[in-house]
Design a protein around this nucleic acid. Structure first.
Lengths: 128, 128, 128, 128
DNA sequence: GTGGTCTAGACCACA
DNA sequence: GTGGTCTAGACCACG
C-alpha cells in the first residue's frame, strides 16, 4: 500500500489521500479490518502536515469507509463486498457520474468507447 | 436551456455553470453554433456576479467547448460529433473516472450495476 | 492575395488582417505600388465591418507599410527592399522578439532549433 | 529579479508580468524550484491589484511554467532544461514567429541581420 | 452592446 | 498566511 502526494497538484492533498485510499479499497489492496497508518506516521512519511492526514481520514469516516478509534487508529470499515450501496450514496454519486460521462462524450469519445474504458477500469478492481 | 446555481454548494459557482453547460452540450440541448447568454445577462438572471460567469465561460473556452466572440458573445464550438477526443483529454479524464468508479464499487455497487448506470446516463445523451 | 479572418479567434480581426498583409509584403506577394482592396470591398468579401478594415489599414499606415489616399485607396508603400529599417523600428521590435524567443527556449526548444526555425520562416519570404 | 509594469502600456498588465517572468526563466534568472513573490506581496510592490497578479500567475500555470502551491505560493516548475518542447507548443509558436519575422524583414532588416539579432537574443539566455 | 481588464475589498479552504 | 472565490463597480477595446 503505497501512498504518494503532489503537494502542488490541482487537488488538495487530503483529497489525493482520500482518493488513493478509496481506490485501494475498491481494488482489494485494503480490506475491512486493515489498519491504516497512524496520522503521525503517514504525515511523517509523506512530509506533510498531520492535520492534513487527519482531514483525509475524517472525510473517509464520514463516507463510511473507515472507523476511527482512539486506540485502534483508522481501520477500514467498508469494502466492495459489505452489502449493497445506500440509495443515498447512489443519489449523490449519479450527478457526478453524469458530469464526468458528459465530459467524455462531449469531447468526442463515442459512448461505446466510454463504456469500454469504464469496463476496463472496473476490471482493475475485480481482477485482483 | 435552464441554468441554476447553488451559491452554498460544494463546488464553486463557476464550476457548476461549466458542468451544466457541458452536460447540455453532451445531451444535444446545446449544439455547435448556439449562443449562450451574455455574461451580464446570465449573471443578472442567476443573481450572481458577472465575473463569475466570465470565469465559467473562460474555462469552457480553454476546454474548447465554446468560442468567446467580440460581438457574438459565447458560442458553442464543440459537440459530441465534432471529431474524436484528443489523447491528452483522455489521459486527463481516465484517472478521474477511476476514482469515481472506485467510489461506486467500494460502496457496494456491483460492477455490472455500475456499468448499467453509466449506460443509462450515456443514453440520456444519445437518445435525444 | 487571399485574406481570411476568424471572427472569434484570439486576435482581434483588424490585427489578423494587419498580420496577413505584413506577411504578404514580406513574401513579395504585395510589392510597393500595389493597391489593396477598398475598405468596402474587403469588408463585404470577408463579411466584416468596414470600420474594422479601416482600423487595419490605419494601423498599417502608422507602421509605414501603406499610404492611404482619398482617391487612390490603400497602396503598399514599403517593402523589404526599400532601404534599411529605422533604428526606432528595431528598438520597438527587439523586446517583442526577446519575449517570443524566450518563450520558445523556456519551453524546451534548443537555441539551435529555434534559429533553424527562424531561418526556415525567413526563407519563406526570400525564396519567392 | 526585478519586475516592473507600465499601467498605460499596450499590453495588459498581467501579460507584461507573464512576459517578464518567461524571459527570466529563459535567462536562468529564475530556475525550477524558485519561489515567486506572493500575489499580495507583488501587487503591493507594483502598486497594482492582487487579482491582476493572480491572472498572470494563473496564465503561467496553464502554460506549465509555474505551479501554484497552497502554502508555498507560486513556484517555477519549468525551465529550458526540463525536456523538449511539446509539438503543440511549437505549432502554436510558429505562426507568431512568422508574423514577427515578417515584420522585421518587411521593414527592411536583411534576413541575415534578423537571424543575427535572434542569435544575440538567444545568447542572452544561454550565456548566463 | 459585447467581452476584456482593472480596482477594491471580503470571506473561505488549505496547510 | 497562502491562493481561491465571489462581489461590486468602473473603464476600455472591439465591432
Amino acid at each position: 500500500m503505497l501512498l504518494t502526494v503532489e503537494p502542488d497538484g490541482d487537488d488538495p492533498i487530503y483529497q489525493q489521500l482520500r482518493d488513493q485510499i478509496v481506490v485501494a479499497i475498491a481494488a482489494g489492496v485494503l480490506v475491512p479490518g486493515d489498519a491504516l497508518p497512524t496520522t503521525r506516521q503517514l504525515a511523517a512519511d509523506l512530509g506533510i502536515n498531520m492535520h492534513t492526514v487527519n482531514k483525509a481520514y475524517d472525510l473517509l469516516r464520514r463516507e463510511g469507509f473507515v472507523r476511527l478509534g482512539r486506540r485502534t487508529g483508522a481501520v477500514v470499515a467498508r469494502g466492495p463486498a459489505d452489502g449493497p450501496a445506500d440509495a443515498e450514496d447512489v443519489a449523490e454519486w449519479e450527478p457526478r457520474a453524469r458530469t464526468l460521462l458528459a465530459e467524455a462524450f462531449a469531447k468526442g469519445m463515442p459512448p461505446q468507447e466510454v463504456l469500454e474504458r469504464c469496463q476496463v477500469l472496473l476490471d482493475e478492481f475485480t481482477k485482483r
